[in-house]
Amino acid sequence: MVRHPMRALAACGVILLALISGPWSGYAQAETPAAGGREPATVKLSATQQKQIGLQTAVLAAESHPEQIRAYGTVLDVARLTELTNNYANAQAQLQTAQARLEVARLAYERARDLVQSAAMPKKDAEAAEGTFRTDQAALAAADSQVKTLMATARQEWGAVIGRGIIERSPQVVQLIEREQLLVQVTLPPGVTLAEPPRFALAQAPTRSVNIDLRYLSPATRTDPRIQGVSYYFVAGGDSGLLPGMNTTAYVPSGKSYDGVFVEDTAIVQWQGRAWVYLRAGPETFKRHPIRTDQPVSDDDYVVQDIPPGSELVMRGAQVLLSEEAKSELRGGGDDD
């Protein structure tokens, strides 16, 4: 699993409220530009204030990252797979029983026929033996047909890989039946295709604090009717926290690379319908910088291209800076009135 840091927004909010009502009101400043407030204000915090809120910064270098496609995952209920596996095992047992009965009936019929020819057995007894032999022949044909029908059904419903696993009762299918692993159907957005199936993917855990590793299994035999995109089957660990029937967000590598800076969710703030980060502008000043979030790594972490090289990014405390900036703008608006 790929782990991500726990969010600290609630803690920052508590600190901010305490500081707003305390000695901060005379020290934290936002230098608002005069041009209608279109440009983000510069937020000024002293070194002491930065320490109080636990502000952390880092200079992050751009690196090559695999491009991720945000897809849609559904944890499937494998009750039908279990049913098919059991039905096939029962049909196979019936076929073997029918084969054994036919062999016994064949030997009895041949023996009876020889005895009739030597006048050692009445003809009616030989005819009875032949009737039993013909009946067992029909039973064998029916059992064989049932096995072949279930084989075809398994392949039609689950595809060649899982279908073969049902027929052979493979370890993979047994793990799915016993819930040691979970079957996840991942569907790409409509119109998106991949040059070749992905070997792995990530899924957002229910707790949203980790990503769950998904291992590719096979192409799906049907799409998600809500999405209408290309679908694949993946497997996840049975202890991943996922449950049958759950929906999750999945991240599938496209096979392409993407150069950018990995930015965690704690560094990103939302304002006026878009995402921003704060960059250090000086020892005591910070400025909000817009970013694009079209390359997700999880639901809240991104690979970002539009951060100037060498910039010092605020990794912890961005939410407090946004709140102080907003508070300063409100004070400025009150002065204008």
Rank of each mutant, 00 (worst) to 15 (best):
E324L: 12
L19V: 03
Y278H: 02
L242R: 09
M151S: 02
S311K: 02
D265A: 13
L322K: 04
Y232P: 02
S118D: 10
S145W: 00
Q181D: 09
G310K: 06
R134F: 08
P189S: 12
Q181R: 15
G163N: 02
E325R: 07
I15N: 14
G26T: 14
E312N: 13
T153F: 00
A89E: 13
F262N: 07
Q49T: 05
G165C: 00
Q305K: 15
V186F: 03
A220E: 08
N90T: 11
S118K: 14
R134K: 14
D337V: 12
S218M: 05
E168M: 03
A318E: 00
L214P: 03
G13H: 10
L55A: 08
G334P: 02
G237D: 13
Q96V: 04
A281K: 10
V252R: 06
M6W: 04
A119W: 07
Q68R: 12
Y258P: 03
F286S: 07
R222C: 00
E63I: 07
K124H: 09
Y109M: 09
R3V: 13
Q272T: 04
R226I: 00
A62P: 04
Y278L: 05
A35V: 07
V173F: 00
E67N: 10
L140K: 08
L95M: 14
P206Q: 12
K124W: 12
V192T: 15
A71D: 11
F133D: 03
L322C: 08
E178Q: 15
T293V: 15
P253N: 05
E196S: 15
R199W: 10
